[in-house]
């Protein structure tokens, strides 16, 4: 499974990638913002994206993916510090499949991934 991890923090990309690789997900692509993410969407089967990023934020990325017929059905999990109820609702309305508020554990990350892949 090819997974795209989008976050402007190298530390957070590394944490997510470490968690994925130690759980058997080997094919990981990284991007630092929404524009880079869109350029790397070919073959991607799951997107894990931050919300607040420079150049193009995560919510704009979600809108772009959902409006592109080629990628519209790719599952997206948002991983962000934006934890207010209104923000979660907004992200879900834009087409995010699930939502993780930082800080998170490896267990939560894997449970959410499993859930969206089953869905």
């Amino acid at each position: 499974m090819k997974i795209l991890v989008v976050d402007d923090s190298a530390t957070m990309r590394r944490i997510v990638e470490n968690n994925l690789k130690t759980s058997g997900f080997e094919d990981i692509v990284q991007a630092t913002n929404g524009v880079e993410a869109l350029a790397n969407m070919a073959g991607i089967e799951l997107v894990l994206t931050d919300w607040n990023m420079p150049v193009m934020d995560g919510l704009s990325l979600v809108k772009e993916i959902r409006s592109n017929p080629t990628f519209a059905n790719v599952p997206i999990v948002m991983i962000t510090t934006e934890g207010a109820k209104e923000e979660v609702i907004q992200a879900l309305k834009e087409g995010v499949n699930d939502y993780i508020v930082k800080p998170f554990t490896k267990q939560v990350l894997l449970e959410k991934i499993e859930k969206v892949l089953e869905g």
């Binding site: 923090s9 530390t11 957070m12 962000t80 510090t81 934006e82 934890g83 207010a84 930082k102 800080p103």
Partner: peptide, 16 residues
């Protein structure tokens, strides 16, 4: 970067 991200997560948690 890691210190920036930790600060971001703490501020975001308090903000929520």
């Amino acid at each position: 970067d890691s210190i920036g991200e930790l600060t971001n997560i703490v501020a975001g948690g308090a903000k929520t």
